[in-house]
Design a protein around this nucleic acid. Structure first.
Length: 646
DNA sequence: AGTCTTTCCGTCAGG
DNA sequence: TCCTGACGGAAA
């Protein structure tokens, strides 16, 4: 009781998880992170600057919380009270309004949720506000690849890093690490404030931590048996294609080896000599003949081999990454859950690993299965990795997609009147309108081809594609591509002005800012090397759009998370974020209600009053639902009422 | 000399 | 043309 009281009174709590081998979150990353066995909590009261920054002040103290789950019937009384103490202490950490600091706080939250899954509801961590120096350091410089706590400390506090200790010396090292973590956090906070990043950090990035922790601790169910069947099917298909490839090449070779394929295609068959009118792509670093998809498509009329390799690649990609890869993430379990990274992308986007949920193929793949038994009969099987993910019984997947966010943000950022006009009608087909505007056709005359061209040209031009690249994308001559490019920028003059303005500003100040003030510094923006400088210019323009889109999408995640966690009836859980799309698992009976809530919450982000953001374009959200991620169909949501009844 | 581990490169899935 | 992560082979 005294200790709990002491913790409640403490000015600041600084803590780290301790693993079974004695290492902590502050030690350099290991290959296999050992299981967590406890928490070390520093209760800081002594903020006197005269005490050394890596040692305890006279009013500071530290406590070790042992995490260990012994069933109640096997516990002695001391155990019981110890476990109760640990739980109360942790609950205090999660709900306290004074300062709490933890390096890699998301991992702490996830561990707490997993450890106390009986007594700790995910909604209880929703309000928690733990400061995380890793996130702060990344916001200050998103490009800095800090590998560990020590690097961050030496970068911001300019002190010799402590030498890793073991055995009995370890405990004093950990305590001194926690002490220096406190001062590192102070330093980072003051830097964030002086660079105008404090609100972004406190209101958005810190609020993301519980969202991601809750997302990671949710299980996504997978049809494991179907995955195993698919793996076998694709395995036999690969063997067949491999043999076909050998026959076509006239020799055996490793079909998965680009080096060997290059030898066969260009040294043995000499296919590049037979297409001088076409330009074949080269590899980036060594300027060799490329064997990429684009190159193989150019070669496919000259020889049967390229086409076979293209099919091999398709099948192999699906099998290795999206079937066997997913299976290996499941171990003996029947579900997966990705690890979500907040600090790995310079643009502010989040990324996923093990598996990378954001890269699962959108389109299913058709595989023709040869039937040796019946002769001519050929069976076509469709393989769709997304269809392997299924909601729990009684629940439904619901996806909410920001339609054309990047283009809408571009219209806002540039204030281009023509581009803004395109978005005034919420029902219009945006890319068809763009095509008609810029080619001077009437709406009815626009073909789907024109529409695709418009879509591609928009993003290519904005991101600064060259004439050569553009001609490759559009499938027209470089001269024509150049004309498209010019007429596009002539039609949207203010868009061009925005691009120029952004580059100019970046030259002047060395960085650019997203709509919510996220910063990217581009050290190469004034490089004497032309290609390096041009790259930085493209990155600056791209960041304005991609970074701002990331801001919006994260804001949406947080708002919806807060709405659900403060409601007693709603139970929807976030499964994944696909940059401009949020995927939820919703109880069947709540689908319609939740769909309306999500749509109106996301669209209302056009105006974020408390941050002073008012977009000049409306936002449009499309909602779909389904009983597997592979079969989602659009929901028709009636227009949002001003205040949705709950 | 053979085996293991790490790093780099090319390719391709997503946005 | 920007931003990711995963995989396999080749090289170190």
């Amino acid at each position: 009781m005294q200790m709990l009281e002491k913790a409640a009174q403490a000015k600041t709590l600084v803590l780290t998880m301790v693993h079974q081998d004695g290492s902590t979150q502050l030690d350099p990353e290991q290959k296999l992170t050992p299981p967590v066995c406890g928490l070390l909590v520093l209760m800081k009261n002594d903020l006197d600057l005269s005490t050394p920054q890596d040692s305890l002040g006279s009013n500071d103290s530290a406590v070790f919380l042992k995490l260990d789950q012994t069933p109640a019937w096997a516990q002695q009384q001391t155990h019981q009270s110890q476990e109760l103490f640990t739980r109360n202490m942790l609950l205090q950490v999660l709900s306290r309004s004074q300062l709490v600091v933890c390096y890699k706080a998301k991992d702490l939250l996830r561990t707490a949720l997993q450890f106390y899954k009986q007594d700790l509801n995910w909604k209880q961590v929703a309000g928690c506000h733990i400061q995380d120096p890793q996130v702060a350091g990344w916001l200050l410089d998103p490009a800095y690849p800090f590998s560990c706590y020590q690097d961050l400390l030496s970068k911001h506090c300019k002190r010799p890093s402590s030498t890793p200790a073991q055995g009995t010396k370890k405990i004093s090292q950990v305590i001194s690490d926690l002490c220096s973590l406190y001062w590192l956090n102070m330093e980072l906070c003051s830097k964030l404030q002086s660079r105008g990043l404090w609100e972004l950090y406190s209101d958005m990035e810190l609020s993301m931590i519980p969202v991601l922790a809750v997302m990671e601790s949710h299980h996504i169910h997978v049809d494991k048996e179907a995955l195993k069947r698919t793996s076998e099917l694709l395995g036999t298909k690969m063997k067949q294609l491999e043999q076909e490839a050998h026959r076509a090449a006239g020799q055996k070779f490793l079909v998965t080896s680009n080096t060997q394929l290059r030898t066969v295609l260009f040294e043995k068959l000499r296919l590049h000599e037979r297409c001088e009118n076409k330009k074949l792509p080269k590899t980036i670093n060594k300027q060799q003949q490329s064997t990429s998809e684009a190159a193989l498509l150019q070669l496919q009329d000259l020889h049967p081999l390229p086409k076979i390799i293209l099919e091999c690649r398709q099948i192999h990609k699906i099998k290795s990454t999206f079937v066997d890869g997913i299976l290996s993430c499941m171990m003996s379990k029947n579900y997966i859950s990705s690890t979500w990274h907040q600090t790995s992308a310079v643009t502010g986007r989040i990324s996923a690993k093990h598996p990378n949920f954001q890269a699962l193929p959108r389109q299913p793949l058709q595989v023709t299965k040869k039937q040796h038994v019946q002769g001519k009969e050929e069976e076509v099987v469709t393989v769709h990795p997304r269809a392997m993910f299924i909601p729990q019984k009684g629940w439904t997947f619901l996806a909410a997609d920001f339609c054309q966010v990047e283009l809408r943000l571009l219209a806002h950022l540039s204030s281009d009147p023509e581009l803004l006009r395109v978005f005034t009608n919420p029902l219009a087909d945006v890319f068809a309108m763009l095509a008609s505007q810029w080619k001077g056709l009437s709406e009815g005359e626009v073909t789907s081809e024109d529409r695709e061209h418009a879509k591609r040209i928009v993003y290519s031009v904005v991101y600064g594609a060259g004439r050569e690249r553009l001609s490759g994308i559009l499938g027209v001559s470089p001269h024509q591509a150049s004309q498209f490019h010019d007429s596009f920028l002539q039609t949207y003059k203010d868009l061009q002005a925005f691009i120029q303005r952004t580059i100019q500003l970046c030259h002047k100040q060395g960085y650019v800012l997203s709509i919510l003030g996220r910063r990217r510094t581009l050290p190469n923006i004034n490089s004497p090397d032309w290609s390096i400088r041009m790259q930085a210019e493209r990155q600056a323009v791209n960041f304005m759009v991609q970074g701002s889109a990331a801001d919006l999408c994260k804001m949406a995640m947080i708002r919806i998370f807060n709405l659900v966690s403060s409601s007693t009836s709603l139970s929807a859980r976030l499964i994944a974020q696909l940059h401009d799309e949020l995927l939820y698992e919703v109880e069947d009976s709540q689908v319609e209600h939740f769909a309306a809530l999500v749509k109106s919450t996301m669209e209302s982000l056009q105006h974020i009053d408390h941050l002073g953001v008012h977009l000049k374009v409306p936002l449009k959200v499309a909602v779909s639902s389904g009983k597997s991620w592979g079969s989602m169909s659009e929901l028709n949501i009636p227009p949002a009422t001003p205040s949705p009844s709950l």
